[in-house]
Amino acid sequence: MSQGDRGGATTAEPVALDLYQQIVLEHSRRPQNFRRLDTPDRRAEGHNRLCGDKVTLYLRLAGGLLAEVTFEAAGCAICLASASLLTETAAGLSVGTAERLAAGVIGHFDDPAAHALPPALAALDGVRAYPSRIRCATLPWQTLRQALAGPADAIATTEPAE
């Protein structure tokens, strides 16, 4: 991905970088913790009915903490990057803290002044300028809330298409 690879492109690149920041592109190309857990303590599926994106989140709990957070997904770059970042930031948190983090990330897209993103997730802020893509970013976090709330196997669905 060196500049030399960018072929004959000359004018006006980069494009859409506020949405597709390098960190988002890297996480979408090489998602972290992209694997299923065979015996998770919690498992939740999230669906975006608008675009068909699907996220499955797996949690292993130990002593009230999220000892392991992994996922599988079929979705767009924003969804994959958001899920990948989620597994990195939620691992090691207590159930309560993870729940507050998920609520805060989802809340950020409604009211950024009231819900600041933690620095590790700052790259997701660019999605705010693309209303049709916000659900792509929030789907993994809604799925996390479902997983935390239980039951052990839960299904989350984003709001239906308008």
Binding site: V15, Y20, A77, R133
Partner: peptide, 14 residues
């Protein structure tokens, strides 16, 4: 390797 919605957003930027 590119989701259609990502394609659509990049095209919209142009």
């Amino acid at each position: 390797g590119i989701h259609p919605h990502d394609v659509g957003t990049v095209l919209d930027q142009r």
